[in-house]
Design a protein around this nucleic acid. Structure first.
Length: 290
DNA sequence: AACGATATCAACCGCCACAAA
DNA sequence: GTTTGTGGCGGTTGATATCGT
């Protein structure tokens, strides 16, 4: 190994070296050293890499810096509506399995997704005064925010270009569905709801939550792709692990217009439109019935 | 302009699983 | 079977940026 020619990676760090370890924000110089070293020698064996590169950092710190920031294909900021939708969907299936979720968002790190969830989603749950893990909040995401995101994506791509949305998201979701249909053994099985065709509530237009009924479009309770299957130009991909459309394209008309949920006091999910009008979740359920 | 509150995100921590010694 | 080193993960913290008054 080339690294071995440069320094003895088997040499344990001395006490003095342990004392000298740096922590906190990385400097430009440190970044440069790390990038140059990995470019020349590849990544992995992070502890010896840190020593050989002359970085006074732990291997863990180097690994984290590389994976979350310096890696060439890493993407940061501007989480798109498509990505938000994927995060919401995958989190509903897998819970806080950030790394697993990140595998389905190319270029995104588990750290970024985790931060997104904590700063955006949990914040909204807090504003609504409900637990982020409560069924109420999960239903709110699934039956209001996720369709709303779909609507936004559709609006952004134009009705005639829904295929674009498919191309971006469907492959990932197909992979997810295949995993679930196959060897899905997650402890969160209870969160992976069956598709309507398999469910006793198939086609139901109401969801019972905390003793309240919430009128909802007849969409799949868990099958993300159903949102798309009903879009103009959408096709039945049920044979590919994508489930048959469960709505006819009209249900969105019962939802607020693309202008948002402002008439409900329900702000958009992602762009900071959550004004001062703080609805409780119960208020929202009630409002939806009228 | 100043200040406090809030949001954001990079980085760290502790734990666990796994492999090699 | 035990120890040790390492990588990976999820939870948490703290510095900085932004917003509101």
């Amino acid at each position: 190994m080339e690294m071995g020619m440069i320094c003895n990676s088997a040499t344990p760090p001395s006490d003095q070296e342990e004392m000298d370890l740096r922590r906190g924000p990385w400097t430009v110089e440190e970044d440069l050293i790390l990038v140059n070293y990995i470019t020349a020698h590849g990544e992995g064996r992070w502890n010896s890499l840190a020593r050989c590169a002359g970085l006074k950092r732990t291997g863990k710190s180097c690994r984290l810096r590389w994976l979350n920031y310096l890696r060439p294909d890493v993407r940061r900021g501007n989480i798109t509506p498509e990505e938000q939708l994927l995060i919401l969907e995958l989190h509903s299936r897998w819970g806080n399995r950030w790394s697993k979720i990140a595998q389905h968002l190319p270029g995104r790190t588990d750290n970024e997704i985790k931060n997104y969830w904590r700063t955006r989603v949990q914040k909204h749950a807090k504003q609504l005064r409900c637990d982020v893990n409560s069924k109420q909040f999960k239903d709110l995401m699934r039956y209001l925010w996720m369709p709303r995101l779909v609507e936004r994506i559709r609006a952004a791509s134009g009705n005639g270009e829904v295929d674009h949305v498919y191309q971006n998201i469907a492959p990932s979701m197909m992979a997810v569905d295949q995993m679930i249909d196959g060897n899905y053994d997650d402890q969160n099985t209870g969160q992976a709801k069956p598709c309507p065709e398999d469910s006793s509530t198939a086609g139901s237009s109401s969801v019972e939550s905390a003793g309240m009924h919430f009128s909802s479009p007849p969409v799949s309770s868990a099958c993300f792709t159903d949102y798309y299957a009903g879009a103009p130009g959408g096709e039945d991909k049920s044979g590919d692990g994508i489930h048959t459309a469960q709505f006819d394209g009209n249900w969105t008309e019962s939802l607020p217009s693309p202008g948002g949920y402002s008439h409900l006091g329900l702000p958009d999910f992602d762009f900071g439109g959550w004004g001062e009008n703080l609805w409780s979740v119960d208020d929202i359920w009630l409002q939806q019935q009228y």
